[in-house]
Amino acid sequence: MKGKLFFAYISSIGLLLISIWLGVSIGTAEVPFSTLWDKETNESAYNILWSIRMPRVILAGLVGASLAIAGAAFQGLLKNPLADPYTLGISSGASVGAVATIFFGLSLPIIGTYTLPFVGMICAFLTMILVLTFARLVDRTMKMETLILTGVIFSSFLGSCISLMIALTGEQLREIMGWLLGSVSMRGWPYVQMIIPFVMIGTIILWLNRRELNAMMYGDERAQSLGVNVKKSKYAILAGGSMLTGAAVAVSGTIGFVGLVVPHMTRMLWGADHRHLLILSFFNGASLLIICDLVSRTIISPSELPIGVITAFIGAPVFSFIFYKQRKSRG
């Protein structure tokens, strides 16, 4: 058992390092990885790596990691294998903010070009407050069904707001659709800086509740009788997960599949114990999105595909294979 977990961590970290290495090295211009710390030999290549590819790879990794760990936590909290980071509707809030920014051509003073992620994050935050307040109003104990239904209500309402703006828009349609499908291209270091604090805080909050998540798998009553402060933990997990989701969507759009499938794959390979599931999902989510981004920008180079298309394209077969193998071996 111990050996298996050791292998899980080693292989997940190894995969992440390989993904970063590939993500940085491969592209329209082939540059060796060593250029990263070798400015003299090829200055333009050095600049490509540090100002374009490196932030892109790191951003993809952070977004993938955020979505995967938030997905793992929401699935555990809601005890529902269909839950993902978008279930609660926080992402729809962030999307409404971002789409509105494009639709109205908003540009806030001082932050200028970073208006879009900023508004997205603000909207995600407001949505989170609204969703939690509403769920609490309906049912003080915030049962799993209440949360899921609240998420459905908010998602569909905010979704129709987005549809309305799409219907009314003219020339920005392509830009809006491109953003909705998700992308980590042309973002640069400021986006990475913007998401990092949320990723750190959100991840720490979720990790601190890893054992509480394990207990809550057996229902709120059993968890409470085990000594878990169920209400407090629920708020913490919802806030942590929402923070990660909101930040990820605000910087990269709604990239699907990662938050749903990475936790499942991790669970199938190494078990449902949240003490390990959260961190392993974090690493593997990062790896998956880095690789998907690499494929999206190289497969029909010099054009790029939306990353959301690739996540499902690569993720679904891999997921099917693991699913099949696992069911087979257990008879």
């Binding site: 009553e221 409470q224 078990g271 114990d273």
Partner: peptide, 14 residues
């Protein structure tokens, strides 16, 4: 005190 409500295997099994 330990409370054992009626439990069933969960969506994600350990």
């Amino acid at each position: 005190m330990t409370v054992l409500p009626q439990l069933h295997a969960t969506a994600f099994s350990n």
